[in-house]
Design a protein around this nucleic acid. Structure first.
Length: 240
DNA sequence: GCGACAG
DNA sequence: ATCTTGTCGC
């Protein structure tokens, strides 16, 4: 596991953060179809917090896209770099996520984020932001519709409906399990929406959420626990 | 104007 | 996100 500090010059206010989004938004690439589902590497990233101790832990888990077997993993911990403000989630997660990705022993391939890409008030959510900073293909899978609207997709797995911001389709509500609440897929960088949905279905053979986010979620929680224990030793850790 | 709102 | 044990069900 690696340790990171908040980058110098990292936005400190909402105004600065929004300005960064408005500037970087122009760098997003939307005209690439992206990698073929079921080939290469697919990497899940996720973050866990301990606000009271000002600690954030990120995890990156690389899966073989065909077998969904774990190929590699890495974690990073740091100080919380930004408060949670809807629309500015990326500034809270990105420094530690970048460190985890850089600690991987192999190329991440396609990166799946926990959150949104273009489905965002300024069309520049976490997945788009991470894609621009790394140059990697990225998309987001969120558990909630945020402030967007959608019609409930048909019950069968694979059904979908547009996720709408006003009149624009900014993503898709995708049913990954028959009759279960859909997930909300949106493009980040260098991947098309059809491809992102195909990848999401390939990553959900058994559960509503993609294996990438499930694996990254459990790993970053474990990393947070270990970081917390190191900071404030318990009797159990002191004995061994 | 106020509240809601990814994690 | 997080607070949180056992328990119901495939």
């Amino acid at each position: 596991m690696t340790t990171v500090n908040v980058p110098a010059g990292w936005p400190a206010t909402e105004e600065e953060a929004r300005a960064v989004q408005d500037e970087l938004r122009a760098e997003v690439v939307l005209d690439e179809p992206g990698p073929q589902p079921g080939t290469g590497h697919v990497t899940g990233v996720d973050v866990a917090y301990d606000d009271a101790r000002d600690i954030v832990a990120a995890a990156a888990v690389v899966l073989d896209a065909a077998s969904l077997d774990v190929v590699a993993e890495a974690t990073a911990v740091g100080r919380i770099s930004f408060p949670y403000i809807p629309g500015l989630l990326a500034f809270r997660e990105i420094p530690t996520v970048l460190a985890a990705l850089e600690a991987l022993p192999c190329p991440p391939g396609l990166v799946v984020c926990d959150g949104y890409g273009l489905a965002h008030p300024r069309r520049f959510g976490l997945a788009a932001h991470l894609g621009v900073l790394t140059g990697l293909p990225t998309f987001g899978v969120a558990k909630n519709p945020f402030a967007f609207t959608y019609d409930d997709p048909d019950a069968p797995r694979g059904s979908s409906s547009p996720l709408l911001a006003g009149g624009d389709e900014v993503g898709r509500a995708l049913r990954t399990r028959a009759g279960v609440k859909p997930v909300f897929v949106s493009v980040g960088h260098r991947v098309g929406l059809d491809g992102a949905c195909a990848h999401t279905l390939a990553l959900t053979p058994r559960f509503r959420l993609p294996e990438t986010t499930r694996r990254a979620d459990s790993l970053c929680r474990r990393a947070l626990q270990e970081a917390t224990i190191r900071q404030r030793p318990t009797s159990a850790s002191a004995e061994s």
